[in-house]
Lab assay of single mutants.
Amino acid sequence: QTVHVKGVQYHFPNPEEAVKFALKVAKDLGGRVEFHGDEIHVE
């Protein structure tokens, strides 16, 4: 599972961890989380 944050990719073997990370980052940055297939983008 890959999380993209402002052009940087973070790889997580566990999808659940990836989602938790993405939600935390989005909250910290005041952004939103978008799901694109296997990828999660924080915009």
Rank of each mutant, 00 (worst) to 15 (best):
K20Y: 07
E39S: 10
H36M: 09
N14M: 04
H4M: 12
P15Y: 15
E34M: 13
E39A: 11
F35K: 06
N14A: 05
V3S: 00
E17I: 06
H41E: 03
Q9T: 14
V3N: 00
V42A: 02
F35A: 03
R32T: 11
G7K: 04
R32M: 08
V8N: 08
H4P: 00
D38N: 14
V3L: 02
H36Q: 08
K27A: 12
H41N: 05
K24G: 08
E43F: 14
P15R: 15
K20A: 12
R32C: 14
V25A: 09
K20W: 08
V25F: 05
G30M: 07
G31H: 04
E16H: 09
A18C: 04
F35L: 08
L29T: 13
V5I: 12
G30P: 06
I40N: 00
I40S: 01
F12Q: 00
H36P: 02
K24T: 09
L29M: 12
A22I: 03
H36Y: 13
V25Q: 08
K24Q: 14
Q9V: 15
L29P: 00
F35D: 03
E43S: 11
V19A: 07
D38L: 11
P13Q: 12
H41F: 14
D28A: 14
A26L: 05
K24S: 11
K24M: 11
V3P: 00
Y10P: 01
E43K: 13
A18F: 02
V5M: 05
K24C: 15
V3C: 03
I40K: 01
N14P: 00
E17A: 10
E17H: 05
V33P: 02
E16V: 09
L23M: 13
G31N: 03
F12D: 01
T2A: 05
P15I: 15
H11A: 06
F35H: 05
V8A: 08
E43A: 11
P13R: 11
Q1R: 15
E39W: 07
P13L: 12
V25M: 14
L23Q: 14
H36K: 11
V33L: 11
V33C: 09
R32Y: 13
E34N: 09
F21G: 04
E16Q: 10
D28Q: 14
K27T: 09
L29K: 04
Y10G: 01
F35S: 03
V8W: 07
V19H: 10
D38F: 10
G31I: 06
G37A: 07
P13M: 12
F12G: 00
E39C: 13
K24H: 09
R32N: 07
P15D: 07
A26D: 00
V33H: 02
P15S: 13
G31V: 08
V5S: 03
A26Y: 02
P13S: 13
H36L: 10
I40R: 01
V19M: 15
V5Y: 09
G37S: 06
E34Q: 10
G30N: 10
K20S: 08
T2Q: 04
T2I: 12
G31D: 03
K27M: 12
